[in-house]
Structures are given as C-alpha cells and as structure tokens.
C-alpha cells in the first residue's frame, strides 16, 4: 500500500486534471485574444467580463452542489428574477431595501423547500418539479409587475453599492463572488456535511445503506440552490437599479453547461466548485471574445453549444478509458 499524492505537481494537487485542463484552455484563449483584439486586454474589458459572469457564478455554485447530489434545477433563471421582483415590490411599498432583500431570499428558499418536498417526499423527478417551478415563478414575476420592469430609482446608494460599488479597484460584486466560491469550494471539499452530498449523488441507495439520511441531503441542496438564486437576484437588482421580470430566461442552460464543462455529471456524484467556475469563465470568455471579434450573436450560441458537447464527449471517453484501465 503506497501513499498517493506525493508525486503530483502543485497545480494538480490544487486542482484535478479537469481543472488543470480548463485553466490551460482559458489561458490559451486569453493569449490568442490578446493578439487578436486590441480591446481585449484592457482594464475595462476585464472588469466588464468578470462582472458579466460573477453574479451568475453564484447560481453556478448552487447548481453544481445540486448536480453533485444527483438533482437538477431548471427554475434558477425564474427564481433569480422572482427575487428581484419580490424585493422590488416590497421596496416600492416602503420596506427597507435590506429587509426586502432578506424577505425575497427567504421566499426563494421557500420555493426551494417546496420543490424539495415534491422531489423527496412525494417522489417526483427533479426535472419535472423544477420545470413546473420555472414556469410558475416566471408567471409570478409577470403577475407581480404586469410584465414591465420596476424602476427602483429611490434605492439608496448604500444598497446599490453591492451591485456597482467597489472596494479599492475591485467591484463589490466580484468580491462577493470570490467569497462565495472560496467558501463553498472549501465546504464541499473538506466538510463532512457536504461530503454527504457526494455520497448521495454517487449512489443514493449505497448512501442510505451507509446510514445517510439521503432525502434530507437532497432537500437541503435543492433549498440551497434556490437560496443562492435569491442572493444573485438581489445583487442584480442592486446593479440594474430595477427589477426585471423577464430576466434570466435561458439562464439554467448556461449554468448547467458551466457546471458540466467543469466536470459535474448529470447522474450525480461528480463535480467541483472550481471546475464549474472555470466552466463559467470559459463560456463567458468565449462569448465576450466572439463579441469583440464582431461574430454574430447566433454564431455564439452555436459555438457555446459545441463547446458543451465537446466537453461532455471528452468526459465520456475519459470515463470509458478509466473503466477499461480498471478492468484490466
């Protein structure tokens, strides 16, 4: 019996093979783009790019954890919008914006709890339950606002600071993103509570046969994902200074794609936060690069879809090779 990790390089000790690969791809793209476009490697562009994915990345964190537990959530875009709408309506009715935000986040957690209830205790599939929730939450957004964005011009500067302010030169939204990522990456890698998420997703029955209360794990990961959507919604609201009932349409696909490119599996048990965030960075980098190169928006979708397919295909062969190697 030999000890394992000694001979690995620093990079692969920090990240797995998947993460290392993604970092290399991102760096390569970075170098190419720096030559291809004079506007790429500028402070403004970097900042804009980071801002673009930093809030969505909070949702990616929630989705990744849910995917690891074996679930999926299609309602993330609608629930993010609903957080904005609830907080916005409360604020327009005289509630303090911070209190309104907390209520909105709690409401999102409540939606997660309802979905979690249907999945674990009624026994329906995540896909169907969250599809229904996606439609219902969007309906609530439109119902609450009459379909028009709510202008929140009176939002105090102290509140808008979380969306557009900076600490030194770093935007607050990016600071929040980094903190959320670091905290959840640590929790997921190292804590017993989140290890249960991997066990449950890897083999739910084996987890139950190991004394793990799997329904509770799945319920809680569903709630966590919706709650993080709520947090993201509030940051968006602070940034836009308005509540957009139609915000986040199609967000679920982007978020799931990022997590899967980062190594999460739709059958559960696999994935890391760093990987998923690198997936989000890659997708965002590709989008903004294509925009800088004046490539049509329609092509962007085609290219993003192809990247997802390439990542999943790569994964498939990797798993098959591991299996073959193991059998021999």
């Amino acid at each position: 019996m030999t000890s394992t990790t000694q001979d690995r390089s620093l990079l692969s000790r920090l990240f797995g093979a998947r993460e290392t690969g993604l970092v290399l791809i991102i760096l390569t793209l970075f170098v190419i783009m720096s030559f291809a476009s004079p506007h790429f490697l500028t402070w403004t562009n970097m900042r804009a790019m980071t801002m673009a994915f930093s809030v969505e990345a909070i949702v990616v964190v929630g989705m990744t954890i849910l995917l690891i537990s074996g679930g999926i959530d299609l309602s993330v875009g609608s629930v993010t919008a609903l957080a904005m709408v609830i907080a916005g309506l409360l604020f327009l009715n005289g509630v303090d914006p911070w209190v309104a935000s907390l209520i909105a986040i709690a409401a999102c957690a409540g939606i997660g709890a309802i979905m979690g209830f249907f999945v674990t205790y009624v026994g329906l599939h995540h896909f169907i339950v969250t599809l229904a929730a996606m439609v219902i939450a969007r309906g609530l957004c439109l119902l609450g606002t009459g379909g028009r964005p709510l202008g929140l011009f009176e939002l105090p500067e102290s509140f808008k600071w979380i969306g557009i302010g900076s600490i030194g030169v770093i935007p607050v939204a990016i600071v929040i993103f980094v903190v959320v990522v670091l905290v959840f990456d640590f929790l997921l890698r190292r804590t017993t509570a989140f290890r249960l998420v991997y066990y449950t997703g890897s083999n739910e029955k084996a987890a139950a046969y190991s004394g793990i209360r799997t329904k509770r794990v799945i319920f809680l990961t569903t709630v966590l994902c919706s709650t993080l959507c709520g947090v993201a919604g509030i940051i968006y609201m602070a940034r836009f200074g308005s509540a957009q009932p139609t915000f986040g349409v199609g967000m679920e696909l982007n978020v799931i794609a990022a997590a899967v490119i980062g190594g999460a599996s739709l059958s559960g048990g696999k994935g890391t936060i760093f990987g998923a965030i690198l997936g989000a960075i890659l997708l965002s980098l590709v989008s903004s690069s294509l925009a800088l190169l004046n490539v049509s928006v329609y092509w962007q979708d085609i290219i993003r879809g192809s990247i997802l397919l390439a990542a999943v295909t790569f994964d498939h062969y990797l798993v098959k090779r591991q299996a073959a190697g193991g059998r021999a």
Partner: peptide, 23 residues
C-alpha cells in the same frame, strides 16, 4: 447496487458510515 460507491475513492468509501472519525 448499494454496497459501495463505485466512482468514489477507497478512502471515501471506507469513511462513509461515520465521517466524524476522520474529521
């Protein structure tokens, strides 16, 4: 089917019943 976690490490499998022992 329900005895082991095939796609997890041996160490993680062995720790599964009581993580507090390795925490």
């Amino acid at each position: 089917g329900d005895g082991v976690f095939l796609d997890m490490s041996i160490a993680a499998n062995i720790a599964a019943l009581d993580l507090s022992r390795v925490a």
